[in-house]
């Protein structure tokens, strides 16, 4: 299975700084819910849930710098 088909992880599309985290492990989320905000490319990018599910990991807190491809949140 190619990584692009695995849409249960939210990764950083570019390095940036986490501004806000709006979820925690165990939360039930719906596709499209805003789970975190990533400041990058002159934008407060909304990181939204790609699918319905339960939050399995949250690997960041506000202020964290993340590199490209870093798994910020995963859902199962």
């Amino acid at each position: 299975m190619t990584s692009k088909l695995n849409n249960k992880q939210i990764t950083a599309f570019i390095p940036g700084t986490i501004v806000e985290v709006r979820t925690k492990v165990g939360d039930t989320v719906k596709a499209g819910d805003i789970l975190a905000i990533l400041d990058a490319m002159k934008m407060n990018n909304r990181l939204t849930a790609p699918v319905n599910g339960v939050v399995k990991e949250v690997n960041v807190k506000p202020g964290d710098r993340v590199c490209k491809g870093f798994v910020i949140i995963s859902i199962e």
Partner: peptide
Amino acid sequence: QPLVMAGV
């Protein structure tokens, strides 16, 4: 589209 990857 500013909503996706800041519209880059």
